[in-house]
Write a protein that binds this DNA or RNA. Structure first.
Lengths: 109, 109
DNA sequence: TTTTAATATCGTAATATTGCGATGTTAAAT
DNA sequence: ATTTAACATCGCAATATTACGATATTAAAA
């Protein structure tokens, strides 16, 4: 079908999956990494840096903005984007909570 | 287009994105969590537990097997699945490496 | 030997995602 | 006032994903 049956799963799983989905794209990872390295950036920088069309970059930025990982600040005719530290840390914790589980003692295999 | 321009991005980003994509589904998260809790499980358990069709569960298991997060062991007419601890830890490290970065001192915002 | 239980795989319909050209908006620059 | 630079959004076309019924396979059970 192409539609995820979210109603079958616990909210926590849906939320984690949703965040991971946003992060699960090389362009969005590249955008985040670039902003982290440069402390901030504008859309045009990313177009030059990543080699994707302006419309495409803008769309990825929107998705990152939607989950709250980045926030934009209008500066004249450009928009300065940077990481939202609070949201970053919240997501960081969620991810730690899942991946830092003990997975020892497999019953078979 | 619906196709990711992987050739534009560093391999490390493509790999990270690929792993995150596999994890970015509530059913697959639920499957992993169930296996972690029970130490192991068979496909039918998950069908009962998650309320998805057998074909669907089987497909999700295949994806998790493809990235190596789980491995299956044939036991009679059923297959016992469990977490591959080594792969789990490798992926854990990759993900931590990205999310544990310092994101301080935003330039704008 | 026939039946049944547990899976895997195939084919397909319904959605979702990705990328981009075209277009509109806004603020600085000329 | 006109031009230009920086974005956002719309509307597609090309792919990808999700879910499941149907069907095949295999091993235990009857």
């Amino acid at each position: 079908m192409g539609i995820t049956k979210s109603d079958l799963h616990p909210d926590a799983y849906n939320r984690l999956a949703s965040v991971l989905k946003t992060l699960a794209h090389p362009a969005r990872i590249a955008i985040l990494q670039y902003i982290i390295n440069q402390k901030a950036c504008i859309c045009t920088d990313l177009v030059t840096e990543l080699g994707l069309a302006q419309a495409t970059i803008s769309q990825h930025l929107k998705e990152l903005k939607t989950v709250g990982l980045i926030k934009g600040n209008i500066e004249g005719k450009s928009v300065c984007y940077c990481i939202d530290e609070n949201v970053w840390r919240t997501i960081q914790q969620t991810i730690h909570q899942f991946f830092d589980q003990e997975v020892n003692i497999p019953k078979c295999c």
